[in-house]
Computed example of a mutant assay.
Amino acid sequence: MDRDTLLLRALAQIVSDERLRARFLALTGLDPETLRARAGAPETLEAVGAFLAGHEPDLVAVATALGVEPSALCGPS
């Protein structure tokens, strides 16, 4: 699976969890409508990787939910 697809799946995990969604929106400054419109944009996907890299427990939780190694979500593109 390519990295963009993986980060898009990670974004889906983030927005499905109320706590993660609220934190992601607060840290990125995005609102729900803008996030929906820009979900697949490169800058949004990079924000997902940076968001997860910034808090290891969330990174591990999302990686586990997706069945991937944490480094796949926040490693180099």
Rank of each mutant, 00 (worst) to 15 (best):
M1T: 05
D2Y: 07
D2A: 11
D2C: 04
R3L: 02
R3A: 13
D4M: 11
D4H: 11
D4V: 07
T5D: 14
T5R: 10
L6C: 04
L6F: 08
L6P: 04
L7N: 05
L7P: 01
L8G: 15
L8T: 08
L8V: 05
R9C: 07
R9S: 15
R9H: 13
R9G: 13
A10P: 04
A10K: 03
A10V: 03
A12F: 01
Q13R: 13
Q13A: 10
Q13E: 10
I14D: 03
V15Q: 15
V15W: 00
S16Y: 08
S16A: 15
S16N: 10
S16Q: 08
S16E: 03
D17T: 11
E18N: 11
E18Q: 13
R19H: 08
R19E: 07
R19N: 14
R19F: 02
L20Y: 06
A22R: 07
R23F: 00
R23T: 07
F24C: 12
F24G: 09
F24T: 02
F24L: 01
L25I: 13
L25E: 01
A26M: 07
A26G: 05
T28P: 03
T28R: 06
T28K: 01
T28S: 14
G29T: 07
G29R: 01
L30C: 09
D31V: 14
D31S: 11
P32H: 01
P32D: 02
P32M: 04
E33G: 07
E33D: 09
E33Q: 15
T34G: 01
T34S: 08
T34F: 02
L35S: 09
R36M: 11
R38K: 14
R38Y: 05
A39H: 04
A39D: 08
G40I: 01
G40N: 06
G40C: 02
A41L: 10
A41F: 09
P42G: 10
P42R: 15
P42L: 10
E43Y: 12
E43A: 12
E43N: 11
E43C: 05
T44S: 04
L45D: 02
E46K: 14
E46C: 09
A47D: 03
V48K: 05
V48E: 04
G49A: 10
A50P: 02
F51A: 08
L52A: 02
L52S: 01
A53I: 00
A53T: 00
A53R: 12
A53E: 00
G54C: 06
G54E: 00
H55V: 00
E56S: 09
E56A: 14
P57Q: 03
P57C: 02
D58N: 15
D58S: 13
D58I: 12
D58P: 05
D58H: 14
V60A: 06
A61R: 15
A61Q: 04
A61T: 12
A61F: 06
V62E: 00
V62F: 05
A63R: 03
A63T: 06
A63S: 04
T64Y: 09
G67I: 09
G67C: 06
V68Y: 12
E69K: 13
E69T: 11
E69F: 12
E69Y: 14
P70M: 08
P70T: 13
S71K: 14
S71Q: 15
S71C: 13
S71R: 14
A72T: 06
A72R: 14
L73D: 05
C74D: 07
G75W: 06
G75C: 05
G75N: 11
S77Y: 13
S77I: 07
S77N: 12
S77K: 14
S77R: 15
